[in-house]
Design a protein around this nucleic acid. Structure first.
Lengths: 343, 343
DNA sequence: TTGTACGCGTTATCAA
DNA sequence: TTGATAACGCGTACAA
């Protein structure tokens, strides 16, 4: 009695092997490691596969091999421009490899991150890319249990789970504020939003640079947990002005805030930088074309995404990079908005 | 002779079934269609699964069932803000469902799109979301062969592959230009970049609105295939000004260009809207907070992503939406940058 | 370099 | 509503 189940109708490896006159396993090897075959068989399998239009069944491959060719990626936001550049780097790099990307959005929540990590764990990805270095203990445990190469991106710090690609937000902000100090600004405000860990470390850089110059004062600071936006930049700057009307410069936790501050200055007829200097963070595209051009800290976001994939894929294939932590640095882009103060 | 292969070490369905005292298939049903079980067995399987920490093996499931729970998504850009909103809608909606998203970037290339479509085809996704309505004939053939629900997003048009969610870029641009005409502007320029199909249809709306008002003139138009950016907005506007120094308004193909135009006006000390009116397209966040606030056409990008997932998942599960084409419309956001001309 | 034998963990099919 | 059986298409392990 025949109660076979329906076959998929797709070409299978066996059929390719048959046409090529080799055993299925030889055909299998052809797709994973062609060099292991003799030249003649290699050619025969290649042409058979082409003729039949064979496409490997990834599910079967994953089941049999107990692994996948997926790299999981966890980022905190799909809207923030900063991450679109990182993502572009990630997707560009993945296309040159055999790995595909599985993306998820943590929405800046470390609990959501924990959940997503568990979800990923079930799929046994070949590698993992996570944003930042502030995972929960539980998240770290899951990551360690996953037993695959992992890159933490966007910043670097002590105690990597595995590998890291980023830069020091603290140092970068410290450098930006030091620049303002050198330019002769004295009452330098800080505006921050979202207040995720990297924003907090940028604030730390501001705080310590101000303290180092003996210019620190709590009244110069306005922060909010509200998600960042250009519009928000205007309103936090307004708040700052009511607390400290005498400020002569603003260090903005990111570029969106900086642009919002610039617009607010235009609205209030404050000249930049004569009445108010502005520095931002990330050097998004608009900073250079604003009027006046806005000083910012350039970060290598595309490269961060690209390197993360490169490092992870290399590690998957056994070629771990010699140094697990890659510091991509930053570059202070000095523009008109922070021109020296002429007293 | 024992040469068993290593088991994965994970809990399998069989073990859950054993602990629950049912057959594997019953346990299997519990995860896919709990209502098919009697209450007592349902509870027993549930507690056994929980006790063992069972996680389904997706590869095995895909292999056995010949399908996946993946929705493929093809978008033309990861950098363009317009798509981050769409993506957010897509990812938000997918989290409420059992489906996961597989994202790929076509980089505005219909050939790349074709390739990616073939790649997706191999993975037999349960559904597909593609951007725009201008696929190659080959791409359409692949999509039809995929035999799964498909949503085309961002715009609507005749002859859907399956379903559509979007709006008419032509109508939206026509409305924006008509607004400028009504406000009394006569020499209305157009700047466009990237010139992807949607940009071209926006241009078509501009052209026809201008012709309808007997204001059309080729010298008022500057376009470039270069990818759009704020900086580019400034330079194409400069080009436009050299061709047509007497223009009194600019219709920008998107908001990035519009902001670049505003900055260029500031650089040239042209007052907006007195010397130059500006309208953009998409109503990105910065349009409302620019100085002056910039008129734009608001589009429902988040909702486009969300509805696309909703429609596709409904269709996968047999509940096809009654109307396959969903027009999400647009809304003209009139702001100071297009205030009426007082001659 | 190639092949044999078997199992990966699940679900479809059919029967009860 | 439940269960027995047989795949799903491929890769691992080992031997030759």
């Amino acid at each position: 009695m025949e109660r076979k189940r329906a076959k998929s109708g797709e070409i299978r490896l066996t059929e390719v092997a048959k046409l090529a006159g080799v055993s299925p396993i030889t055909a299998s090897r052809f797709f994973r490691n062609p060099q292991a075959l003799s030249l003649s068989k290699r050619e025969r399998v290649a042409s058979a596969a082409k003729e039949l239009g064979y496409v490997p069944n990834l599910a079967a491959r994953a089941l049999a091999s107990q692994r996948t060719e997926v790299i999981g990626v966890l980022i905190p936001s799909l809207t923030n421009n900063v991450f679109s550049d990182v993502l572009r780097g990630i997707y560009d790099a993945s296309e040159g490899s055999r790995y595909s990307i599985q993306l998820a959005n943590t929405r800046y929540s470390i609990l959501q991150e924990e959940q997503l990590l568990r979800l990923f764990q079930a799929q046994k990805p070949a590698g993992l890319i996570v944003t930042g270095i502030d995972q929960t203990a539980e998240s770290r445990a899951v990551m360690e249990a996953m037993n695959c190469p992992i890159a933490q991106i966007m910043e670097i710090g002590p105690d990597p789970v595995d590998m890291m690609v980023g830069f020091s937000h603290y140092d970068a902000a410290f450098a930006a504020v030091s620049h303002l100090v050198e330019q002769g600004f004295k009452r330098i405000g800080f505006v921050g939003a979202q207040m995720d860990p990297r924003m907090q470390r940028r604030f730390g850089g501001y705080r310590d640079a101000m303290k180092a110059a003996s210019l620190f004062a709590p009244r110069l600071i306005v922060t909010t947990p509200v998600p960042t936006s250009i519009t928000l930049g205007g309103s936090v700057f307004s708040d700052l002005l009511s607390k400290a009307p005498d400020i002569d410069a603003v260090c903005c936790g990111n570029d969106d805030l900086a642009l919002g501050v610039l617009f607010e200055c235009q609205r209030r007829h404050l000249s930049v930088p004569e009445d108010m200097a502005i520095v931002g963070f990330n050097d998004l595209e608009f900073m250079a074309s604003a009027v006046p051009p806005l000083t910012s800290v350039r970060t290598n976001r595309y490269e961060m995404g690209r390197s993360a994939v490169t490092m992870v894929t290399a590690a998957i294939e056994g070629n771990r990079p010699p140094q697990p932590v890659l510091d991509l640095g930053f570059q202070l882009m000095i523009r008109e908005s922070s021109s020296p103060r002429h007293n």
